[in-house]
Every structure is written in C-alpha cells, then in structure tokens.
C-alpha cells in the first residue's frame, strides 16, 4: 500500500515537473538525434552499409541519451535539498528508487518515440515491429535500472556528470550487446526464436539490477 502510494507520488511529481519544463524529453531527443547524425558523418554513410550499422548507432545514441536523463533526474533532487525531503518520507527508501526508475524509463521511452521515426527515415529501416519494441523496452529498462542506481551515487561525487558514464557503460555492456544484436536480427528479418537468447539475457540483467538496487538503495541514499 505505502509502497505504491510513494511510487505514484514520485512519478506524478516528476511528470508534473517535466510537463512544466519539458526539458528532459526534449534534450534527450535532440541529443540522441545529434549522435545519430554525427555517426552519419563519422562513417560516411552510403545506402548499402547504412542498414548494417543502424542498430549500433541507435543503441549508442540511446545509451548516451540515457546518461543525460539519469544524471538530470538526481541533479533536480539535489536542488533545495529535495533528496532530504524524499528521505523523510514514511516508507522504505527503495520506494524512491522505483519512483525515479519509472520516471526515467518513461522519459526515455517518450524520447525514443520521438527519435525512432526519424531514425527509420534516415536509415531506411522498418520499425513497425512488435519484437523490436519489446527489445527497446527491455533494453531501456536495463539501462535505466543500472543507471538510476549509479546516478544516485554519481551526483554525490565531485565529478558528478562524468562519473556516471564511466561506471554505467562497462556495467551495461550486456544490455548494449543484447539490444544491438537482437535489433540487428529483427531488422534483418530473422525468425523470433533466433533472438530468444538475447531477450532472456536482457530480462536477466533487468531483474538482477532492479533487485540489487532495491536491496542497496537505502545504503546509497544514506548521508
């Protein structure tokens, strides 16, 4: 009971703040698009190899954008000591993790909804595919699950913004590999059972990090 009340309150508060400023989703989308465009220049894309590198470009862009989102979500809580306000709430502190995680996933999915069509047009790939969406959702959850945990630590360090990516990227290697590979296989039109192993890996990663974060968040948030 308490648990859900806290989660929905935090989620609602983050959505309200976002509706007011519209900063997170817009910066995320613009940044992810920029990464896609930069890759275009970097690889001097021609039509014949565009298809091949499209999955990699997409996931690198999403990973970079995710780092921005996770950092921002905790930097906002630092202002005016709001994290203290949250820590005073009458519930286990893992509630804060879940609330923040859901908000981060939501903002990332919104940004993905904006950039996917543009990405599809630029790389000429079909995106109307339920399996692809499932991979994107699972991959996003994985990045966000680890990213939200690490961002809560990174904002309390001297280097703040820099610390998160160098911790998150090595940890999220399985998500990056699984998402990129399965996206490629889906875009290549391979049968669904081919990507089954990847889906399982993504699920495992998501579960492991959510459980780990629920168990350790109290320790992370302590002062």
């Amino acid at each position: 009971m308490n648990f859900w009340r806290g989660i929905t309150a935090i989620l609602r508060k983050d959505v309200l703040t976002e509706l007011r400023s519209k900063e997170t989703v817009s910066t995320l989308s613009v940044f992810a698009l920029l990464v896609v465009v930069i890759f275009n220049f970097a690889f001097e894309l021609r039509v014949e190899n565009a298809h091949q590198i499209a999955p990699g470009v997409l996931w690198v862009a999403l990973a970079f954008a995710g780092v921005l989102a996770f950092n921002r979500s905790f930097l906002l809580e630092r202002e005016g000591g709001c994290m203290e306000g949250l820590r005073l709430m009458p519930m286990e502190r893992s509630v804060i993790y879940v609330g923040k995680l859901l908000a981060n996933i939501l903002f990332m999915l919104l940004a993905e909804a904006i950039i996917l069509p543009i990405f599809a047009a630029l790389f000429d790939v079909p995106i109307l595919n339920a399996a692809l969406w499932m991979v994107i959702v699972l991959g996003t959850i994985g990045f966000a699950a680890a990213g939200t945990l690490f961002a809560a630590m990174a904002v309390n360090t001297r280097a703040r913004e820099v610390m998160l990516p160098i911790l998150l990227f090595p940890i999220a290697v399985p998500v990056l590999i699984a998402s990129t590979k399965s996206t490629a296989q889906i875009l290549d039109g391979q049968p669904l059972f081919e990507i089954y192993a990847w889906i399982r890996l993504l699920l495992a990663f998501d579960v492991i990090f959510i459980v780990l974060a629920l168990l350790s968040f109290e320790h992370v948030l302590e002062e």
Binding site: L16, T17, R20, E79, G80, G81, C82, E84
Partner: peptide, 9 residues
C-alpha cells in the same frame, strides 16, 4: 534551514 521543496512546482 533548507526548505526541502521543489523550486519548479
């Protein structure tokens, strides 16, 4: 002494 409030709300 810190208000513990959200500035944007």
């Amino acid at each position: 002494h810190q208000p513990l409030l959200y500035n944007d709300l």
